[in-house]
Write a protein that binds this DNA or RNA. Structure first.
Lengths: 138, 138
DNA sequence: AATAATTTGACGACGAATCGCAAATTCATG
DNA sequence: CATGAATTTGCGATTCGTCGTCAAATTATT
């Protein structure tokens, strides 16, 4: 089976069909989705699932480290599938696809920041917006 | 008077004492605050103001470009005072102070991103966390 | 001071997110 | 494959942040 089932079993949680379906949506879409959007997509596929369960499953996936959250400007919370620990997201403005990217050049940025205004950089959150390789061709 | 009053007059809006007080809190604090927090701070100062007015004033300040918003992970929306157009925020983890910083090294980052995975960078949102110069000394 | 405009406060509406509990599902065991 | 203990699910109610409505108050102008 997949990793999520194993991770759940290792923590004494059940790997249910419902949870697998929520994770599947995130895996397929690879873009930021609200709990409501995920719920609607599942219902559209003819799958019966409650909104509460979607919320609880998403919370679980975030705890497992396979999903990340983002607070939208309108107060909603969006979720996206992700695989590695520390990274950032490049969001395509055309198709919404989310790619994971490293944070290489931040080292020099941190140096400049300390030299310039004495700020000691410890962590950072970056969101990048633009066109993914597919959408940039058109 | 100050700039905000002039900007309001130029748009046919009134520069009221209430609005000045909300702006004053943001100017003094220089950190991300929710509408509720701002409301409580004003009430604690003995100022009578409704939560609705705080919300409306914050919306107005964002429209004027003197405040910026951030969606928190719990779905709340926070506001911070800011002065220049495009910039990013360095948030002190000790005192919460927010400093504005430029985005110099992003140019090279954009080049690497395009070369690496074909992503065309158009815009970005960055939040930096660490210690401001004062807190770093202790 | 009078007038026309905007703004304020109180109240309610709305939606996102959470909680409690009974019913259903999952999983290990025999 | 049936059984039982554990977890999970669904439903409804609830909380909470945010926004809309409208009469009363405030502001700016004459």
């Amino acid at each position: 089976m997949n990793e999520i089932s194993e991770q759940l079993h290792g923590k004494g949680r059940y790997a249910t069909r419902t949870r697998e379906r929520v994770a599947q949506v995130l895996r397929e879409e690879r873009r930021y989705l609200t709990a409501h959007a995920i719920h609607e997509m599942l219902v559209a596929r003819g799958i019966s699932i409650s909104l509460s369960t979607v919320y609880r499953t998403l919370e679980l996936l975030v705890g497992l480290g396979v999903a990340a959250t983002r607070g939208e400007e309108n107060g909603e919370i969006s979720y996206v599938f992700c695989t590695v620990q520390h990274h950032h997201h490049a969001v395509c403005r055309t198709c919404g696809r989310v790619e994971e990217v490293g944070c290489g050049p931040l080292a020099r940025f941190a140096r400049d920041l300390r030299a310039g205004q004495g700020f000691e950089l410890e962590d950072h959150a970056i969101e990048l917006y633009g066109r993914c390789s597919d959408c940039a061709k058109r």
